[in-house]
C-alpha cells in the first residue's frame, strides 16, 4: 500500500521535475520569484558596484553601496523604485556599515567608524542629522538593528573581549534587561 502510493508520487515527481527545472533557470523556484528592481548607478537598488548589507523595512530598503566610489548608505523606495536622498548621513570622515530602516523611512540606524572609534548612529531624515546613541560606551560596537517605529535599536558590543547584545531605546538609553550592557 505504501509502496504503491510512493510509485504514484514518484511518477508525479517525474512529470513535475523538468517543469520546475525550467522555472529555476528564470527565477528561484516554487517558493516565490525575484522582484525586478532597476540595476544601475543612478537610482537602482543594485548597481555595477558592490551593494551589500540590505535591510528590508517594508516600503524602504536600506543598503551600503560602493557606487559613488566609497562605501555609503543608500535608501531605496520600493514604491517609486528610486533612491531617496539622505542629506547629512554620509560623511567623508565616517565609514558606515549595517544600516537598518524604520517602516516610514524616517529613521536609519547604522554603525559608523570615525577617528578610529566605532559607534551606533540613529539618523533622522526629517532632521537631516545622525545622533550617536553609544557615546557613553567606551568599547567597540557594530551590527545595529532598528524596530519598525525606530524606537528601539539592538546592536553588538564588545565586553571583555567577546561580543554581547545590547538593546537601547531611540534616545540611547539601555532597556532594563538583565545583562544588557550599558
Amino acid at each position: 500500500m505504501l509502496s504503491k502510493g510512493f510509485v504514484v508520487m514518484a511518477s508525479r515527481q517525474l512529470l513535475v521535475f523538468p517543469l520546475s527545472m525550467l522555472l529555476l533557470t528564470s527565477c528561484v523556484g516554487p517558493a516565490g520569484r525575484l522582484v525586478r528592481y532597476p540595476n544601475n548607478d543612478r537610482g537602482g537598488l543594485s548597481s555595477p558596484h558592490d551593494d551589500r548589507d540590505a535591510h528590508h523595512g517594508g516600503r524602504y530598503i536600506v543598503l551600503v553601496s560602493d557606487r559613488r566610489g566609497r562605501q555609503e548608505v543608500e535608501l531605496f523606495d520600493t514604491r517609486s523604485r528610486n533612491l531617496i536622498s539622505l542629506p547629512g548621513l554620509n560623511r567623508a570622515d565616517t565609514a558606515v556599515s549595517h544600516p537598518s530602516v524604520s517602516a516610514d523611512g524616517q529613521f536609519i540606524a547604522y554603525a559608523g567608524v570615525r577617528d578610529g572609534r566605532s559607534d551606533i548612529y540613529l539618523y533622522r531624515r526629517s532632521r537631516r542629522e545622525s545622533r550617536n546613541i553609544t557615546q557613553r560606551l567606551k568599547t567597540a560596537v557594530r551590527h545595529p538593528s532598528v524596530s519598525e517605529r525606530g524606537d528601539r535599536v539592538a546592536f553588538e558590543v564588545s565586553v571583555n573581549g567577546q561580543w554581547e547584545i545590547a538593546i537601547y531605546d531611540g534616545n540611547g538609553r539601555p532597556l532594563n534587561i538583565p545583562t544588557n550592557p550599558r
Binding site: A103, W163, T179
Partner: peptide, 15 residues
C-alpha cells in the same frame, strides 16, 4: 539571560 559567557552576535529585532 539575554547574554551569556559565550559570544552572542547578529542581533535582529522584530518589526
Amino acid at each position: 539571560r539575554l547574554n551569556s559567557r559565550f559570544s552572542d552576535t547578529e542581533p535582529a529585532l522584530s518589526g
